[in-house]
C-alpha cells in the first residue's frame, strides 16, 4: 500500500473494485480541490495583476505539458520531439495572422487542426516503433522541422523570427494589451477547455484502455484491444493540443521564433511534466508553474549562473520525489497519515 498513494486515483479505483461504469463515473466527478485549483488560477488578475504576462505563459506551457501528459503519462508513449507540434501550431497561427487571417479563435482552431493532421500522419510511423527507436523518431522529426524553419527564410523569417503578426481583437472586443490581461483571459479559457477535453478523455473507456496499454501492452493486445488504433488516436489528439498551445503562444506574443521548434522546448516540456508528475493532468500545470516561476526568480536573482540552481532542483526532485511534485507530496502525506493512525 505504501507505494500506491503516489498514484492514488488509480489506487483507489483498484481498491474499490466496482463495476467499470461506476468506477468511471466516480473518477469523472469534480472534487473540491479541483474547483479550488481553477478558482485560484482565475484569481490571478486580482492577486498578481502585474504578472499576467508570465501567468499566461505558464498556462500555455501547462497546456503544452498537458498534451504530453496524455501521450506519456496516460498512453506511455515517450516523445523527445513534442515541440514539433507546438512549433507547427505556432507557425500556422503566425502565418495565418500575417497573411490576413487575423481572427484569433478560428486561427487557433485551424492551427491546432494542422498540428493534429501532422500528428495523424506521423502516427503511422509512431505506432510501429517503441523504446529508443521511438525517442529517435520523435527527436528526428522535430530536428527536421526546426532546420526547415531555419532554412525557409522567405516564409518563416529563419533565425530572425516571424515578424508583422497582426491579430484582430479577441471576439471583436479585446485587443492584446501591454499588461497581458487579454492574453491571460484568453490563455485561461483555452487552457481550461483543453483541460476539460483531456479530463473527459482520460476518464472515458478509451482513457482506461490507454492506461492499460501503458501498464502492460502485451496483455492489452491479448484481450483484443486495438493498440495501434488507440496509439494513433491519442497521438493525434496530443499533437492537436500541442498545436493549440503553440498557436496560443503566437497569438499572445504576436511573434514566432524558431525556438518554438527547438530541442530545448521539447526537453523543457518533458522536465515540466516530470517535475509536476506525469499521469495526473494537474501535474502538467503545476510543473509548468513551478518550473517557470522558479526560473524567473533565479534568473532575476542570478542572471549568470541560474541554470545551476535549476539543474540542482531538478535532480533533487527526481531523486527524492518520485512521481513529481504531486506524487512526492502525496507520499509524504501518506506517511503522516500512517503515523497518525497507529
Amino acid at each position: 500500500m505504501v507505494s500506491l498513494p503516489a498514484e492514488s486515483p488509480q489506487a483507489s479505483d483498484h481498491a474499490s473494485r466496482g463495476r467499470p461504469v461506476t468506477r468511471l463515473e466516480r473518477r469523472s466527478r469534480w472534487r473540491w480541490h479541483e474547483i479550488l485549483f481553477w478558482l485560484a488560477v482565475a484569481s490571478c488578475p486580482l492577486v498578481v495583476p502585474d504578472d499576467l504576462v508570465l501567468a499566461s505563459q505558464v498556462l500555455i506551457a501547462g497546456l503544452f505539458a498537458l498534451s504530453l501528459d496524455l501521450l506519456l503519462g496516460y498512453g506511455g508513449i515517450v516523445s523527445l520531439g513534442h515541440a514539433a507540434f507546438f512549433g507547427v501550431g505556432a507557425y500556422a497561427a503566425g502565418l495565418l495572422a500575417r497573411h490576413g487571417w487575423g481572427e484569433p479563435i478560428s486561427g487557433l482552431l485551424l492551427s491546432g487542426a494542422l498540428a493534429g493532421l501532422l500528428g495523424f500522419a506521423l502516427s503511422f510511423i509512431i505506432v510501429r516503433v517503441r523504446g529508443i527507436a521511438l525517442l529517435m523518431v520523435t527527436l528526428g522529426v522535430s530536428l527536421v522541422l526546426h532546420e526547415a524553419a531555419v532554412k525557409g527564410y522567405a516564409v518563416t523569417g529563419g533565425d530572425d523570427g516571424l515578424q508583422g503578426i497582426v491579430l484582430d481583437p479577441l471576439l471583436g472586443l479585446f485587443p492584446m494589451d501591454m499588461w497581458g490581461r487579454t492574453a491571460f483571459g484568453y490563455s485561461l479559457a483555452v487552457a481550461f477547455a483543453g483541460f476539460l477535453l483531456a479530463r473527459r478523455l482520460v476518464s472515458s473507456p478509451f482513457g482506461l484502455a490507454l492506461q492499460g496499454m501503458r501498464e502492460n501492452g502485451r496483455r492489452m493486445a491479448a484481450i483484443g484491444a486495438p493498440l495501434r488504433r488507440h496509439s494513433a488516436l491519442i497521438y493525434t489528439v496530443s499533437a492537436a493540443l500541442a498545436g493549440v498551445a503553440g498557436a496560443l503562444l503566437t497569438q499572445t506574443t504576436e511573434f514566432v521564433s524558431v525556438e518554438v521548434l527547438g530541442f530545448q522546448r521539447s526537453a523543457e516540456v518533458l522536465i515540466m511534466l516530470i517535475l509536476g508528475g506525469a499521469g495526473h493532468l494537474y501535474g502538467a500545470f503545476i510543473g509548468a508553474a513551478v518550473f517557470m516561476i522558479v526560473r524567473d526568480q533565479l534568473a532575476a536573482a542570478n542572471p549568470e549562473y541560474w541554470f545551476f540552481w535549476l539543474g540542482l532542483m531538478l535532480v533533487l526532485v527526481v531523486l527524492f520525489a518520485r512521481g513529481g511534485i504531486i506524487g512526492g507530496i502525496a507520499t509524504i502525506a501518506a506517511h503522516f497519515r500512517k503515523g497518525g493512525s497507529r
Binding site: 498513494p5 492514488s8 489506487a11 483507489s12 472534487r31 473540491w32 480541490h33 485549483f37 494537474y282 503545476i286 504531486i326 507530496i329 502525496a330 509524504i332 502525506a333 501518506a334 503522516f336 497519515r337
Partner: peptide, 9 residues
C-alpha cells in the same frame, strides 16, 4: 489519502 492529496495540491 485522496483528501490529503487534495491538501497537497
Amino acid at each position: 489519502v485522496r483528501n490529503l492529496r487534495a491538501v497537497a495540491v
